[in-house]
Design a protein around this nucleic acid. Sequence first.
DNA 1: CGCAATAATGAGAACAATTATTATTTGTGA
DNA 2: TCACAAATAATAATTGTTCTCATTATTGCG
Lengths: 138, 138
Amino acid sequence: MLHNATELHHIADRLKHAGLLPTSQRVRIAAAIAALPQHFSAQELQQAVNWDSPEICRATIYNSLRLFVAHGLLQEVHVDPQRTLYDTNTEPHHHLFDPATGALHDLPLGAIELKDRTLIPGKIRPEDIAFIVRIRAS
Amino acid sequence: MLHNATELHHIADRLKHAGLLPTSQRVRIAAAIAALPQHFSAQELQQAVNWDSPEICRATIYNSLRLFVAHGLLQEVHVDPQRTLYDTNTEPHHHLFDPATGALHDLPLGAIELKDRTLIPGKIRPEDIAFIVRIRAS
DNA sequence: CGCAATAATGAGAACAATTATTATTTGTGA
DNA sequence: TCACAAATAATAATTGTTCTCATTATTGCG
């Protein structure tokens, strides 16, 4: 953690730009996210946030995560039935998940091709499709 | 439900063949699964099992599901962060999930292609890769 | 500036899916 | 039949997440 004033101001600006009130908690949460790996869980975020500062309660963490997702600052990734992961990369891309190690990696958009578009119902655009490549337990 | 003796005997045989003791509960659970849609949740199974017969407790349902998966009678599908889904199709194949409707569909093995195999670490065979195609909320 | 309206936060309860515990029951094999 | 090994039931515990609601910030306006 340990962010300087310029950094925090920049974060506040980004929140405002996304249409969010830059409250002190949200700024601290966003700053903690910036210091975490690209993919993280709510729990990891909570620990990072409360590393050295007074506590921000779970509810606010979860609330902010939902808000950040709703405002396009984060993406949710559902690979583990136990917990939701968050991804700071909000560009359309795909994921590779290995349940054996718990590792989650990005895959570029073009890495995967759907052979037959008629398999997808309705008018779904390619950028509205997220692939999750899951290594099967063997 | 309402299964006849021949049917139940056949189910018991399948359990035995998979290396499982065909207890009365497991036979009833397997019979209920046969009457459910291809994809189902533990909850749906529990309701189906206890539809007209004396109750089988949750623990046994969950236990049997885990056993059936471990013995190759069922496949787990993780798409919904809330609950695990089970699939009676144990052949390698892929899934299409629409979070908006909750609908889960099968996709044939050849429907999706990974362009660059070097993206996958280690010696993972194609049949050890499960794709989940997820419609993005838009 | 001060104050009402609005939004955000904290604390803890509530919840849902799943797993663990343990006593009881059932089945198996000698 | 008896001892031993599973399996089951009942229920408690756990985990991740959401809800409730009282308290505290923040904003907009007179």
